[in-house]
Computed example of a mutant assay.
Amino acid sequence: MPLPAELRHTTREEVMFFDTDIGGVVHNLAYLRMIETCRTKLAGLMGMDLRGMADSKLYPVVVRTEIDYKRPATLGDALLIHGRLDELQRARFWCAFEVRRESDDALLITCRQCLALVQMPEGRPVRLPAEWL
């Protein structure tokens, strides 16, 4: 299926106890989990919904993450995770993310992730679908 020219998705998360360290600040793994949720929903818009991936055994696999921490989120903050398809190459694609606090729109995190499509169980990378390019 051809991809829309601009592919975006936003998810909302509330910072829970398990997202924070002893000081009540969100730790890096929690941000990555939140980005993973947004990226999974974005993949669904690209034709890779969870059930479809399980049936086809074709999965988008993260091969690189670049993340910049701008400001901390704390316990109870409502966060908006904005994700978008950023770049398509022959065998990989990039998604970009921003994490913002809902109450004041403060930019907390910027992130880019490079992904490749991998056919399982072989673990073999495959080219992106021609219709995507």
Rank of each mutant, 00 (worst) to 15 (best):
T65C: 10
R112F: 08
E66T: 13
Y59E: 00
T20V: 04
L29K: 10
A30C: 09
R33N: 12
V61E: 07
R51K: 13
R127E: 14
L80Q: 14
A54F: 09
V25M: 07
N28T: 15
R90S: 13
L42C: 07
D55L: 14
C111I: 01
E66M: 09
T20W: 06
R124W: 07
E102S: 12
R12H: 14
D55N: 14
L117R: 02
E6N: 14
R51A: 15
V61I: 07
W132A: 01
H9L: 11
G23H: 12
L88F: 01
R33L: 07
R112D: 10
P129N: 00
L79T: 02
E13L: 13
A30V: 05
P129G: 02
L107P: 03
D49M: 04
N28D: 15
L3P: 13
V26F: 02
E122S: 13
R71S: 11
D19N: 08
L108I: 05
L79P: 06
L79V: 03
F97P: 01
W94M: 12
L29V: 14
V63M: 09
A106F: 02
V63W: 07
L128T: 03
P2E: 12
L42N: 04
E98R: 06
A130Q: 14
D49P: 02
V26P: 00
E122C: 06
G47W: 02
E87R: 13
A43G: 09
R71G: 03
E131R: 07
D49E: 13
A54Y: 11
R127Q: 13
A30Q: 09
L7I: 00
G83E: 04
L50F: 08
G24T: 10
D105P: 01
D55A: 15
E66D: 13
R127F: 14
A43Q: 11
E66S: 10
R101H: 03
T40N: 05
P121S: 01
V15Y: 15
R71C: 06
E87K: 15
Y59H: 03
V62D: 04
L7A: 04
E66G: 08
G123P: 10
E14R: 15
Q119F: 02
V118A: 01
M46C: 07
T110L: 11
L107E: 01
A106K: 11
H27V: 01
F17N: 09
D49V: 04
R51F: 06
C95Y: 09
I81E: 04
R112S: 12
G52V: 06
L117M: 06
L85D: 00
V126T: 11
L3F: 08
A106D: 13
M34V: 04
R101T: 02
L50W: 07
Y69M: 03
D105T: 11
W132N: 02
P121R: 03
K57Q: 15
F93S: 00
I109D: 03
I22P: 15
H82W: 04
P2L: 09
R12L: 09
P2R: 12
P121K: 00
Y31F: 11
R71Y: 07
V63S: 08
L50T: 12
E66K: 08
A78G: 09
H9G: 06
H82G: 12
E13D: 15
V25S: 05
R100M: 07
W132K: 00
A130H: 06
R112G: 08
R51L: 14
M53N: 05
Q89T: 15
R84Q: 11
R100P: 06
R39H: 06
E131P: 08
A91N: 12
Y69G: 02
W132Q: 02
Q89L: 14
